[in-house]
Write a protein that binds this DNA or RNA. Sequence first.
DNA 1: TTCACATTGTGAAAGTTTTCACAGTCAAAC
DNA 2: GTTTGACTGTGAAAACTTTCACAATGTGAA
Lengths: 206, 206
Amino acid sequence: MIPDKTIGRLSLYRRLLNRLLAEGVRNVYSHQLAAMAGVTPAQVRRDIMSIGYSGNPNRGYDMTELIDSIGQSLDDPEGQRAALIGVGNLGRALLTYFSGRRPRLAIVAAFDSDPRKCDRVIQGCRCFGIDRLPEKVAEMDISIGTITVPSGEAQKVADLMVRAGIRGIMNFAPVRLRVPSNVYVEDVDMTMALEKVAYFARKIQP
Amino acid sequence: MIPDKTIGRLSLYRRLLNRLLAEGVRNVYSHQLAAMAGVTPAQVRRDIMSIGYSGNPNRGYDMTELIDSIGQSLDDPEGQRAALIGVGNLGRALLTYFSGRRPRLAIVAAFDSDPRKCDRVIQGCRCFGIDRLPEKVAEMDISIGTITVPSGEAQKVADLMVRAGIRGIMNFAPVRLRVPSNVYVEDVDMTMALEKVAYFARKIQP
DNA sequence: TTCACATTGTGAAAGTTTTCACAGTCAAAC
DNA sequence: GTTTGACTGTGAAAACTTTCACAATGTGAA
């Protein structure tokens, strides 16, 4: 199994490669990708090694082949669908942020407990009452959940998601969720991020 | 210097401790804090060791003392002020998210290049034209910047921030910023986070 | 064909982070 | 006073991640 830091970087590499491909570049060396990603060339080569792709000592990596290889490791061939729970400011921002970007991995339904927010369409994404989550997860084969509710409700929502059969959660609430070990949770903790920045802004020598 | 992962966990511990304190709890053991934070007791003890606080073998850690100790390591006694650049959906969501939470670390000014978004007050935070960033950074002694602009403009904004004297950046744009080594950058890469969740949602054994 | 050379792939080293495991400590019970 | 037991603090081990350094390789030039 590929370690989770590597997965993160592969996702980054792919984004950078796609940008480069749009500029007409056909192949790339580890040191170029490294410079763009802010890592070392050796790290790039190791990461690419981990997905089993090989470059050419003279021309580096073929862009389209490498992008394909990353896709083969990261993407589900059938695509994966995500739900978003909590249509507040942050939830709406995320719907906008992710809408229409990647067909393979899209947020296909939103949920909220506030009836006033339901039965609307936000960024092409229909909003349902939270009680319809299990039904919709089954119907649309949703495997991923995004939690953007207030912290007090996050655990309740996580429990509901797990019962509905969701396998991975991206959690924006500043709470550690308790879930079974076969459900993956990625915390996006913005408060922690801001406090880290504040600390290092002070500590890094001027 | 305390490593950055430790700083992140200390920030988390403090949040958990404050929640517990509100419930009237007066002291806490490493295994309790560990359970709440989702880490091992040994890790909690190491982290607390790194800020130089000591508990009591019989009563664990004194809550208020520990919270104070963490504050002494993480917080600037004078407080720190942050600016937010990019008043789109995500920017507004963050202003709401952070508004009024911590007096020691607040977003005190917002900036946007769109004149229609300027001269308004969003969540108690005044919005200025981006050209006034240097002036306001100096005037309000802002040391931290939050980037929520489209990726194409992120590097330009980062350059402007660096020139204005900002020391730490929380970056939401999916781009690696080039900054001098005395400026700290924390990337909050939501696309990467979602792709990681998608990958592990598939890979973790059912 | 042969050479030169920038690059890849990777075993091993170095560095970093986490966990183990246990001596030392404190307070409550007796 | 002494014993007991759960907990802390921490050196050392383990696990994990990154970097080094160099043999192997493919290509273009001579």
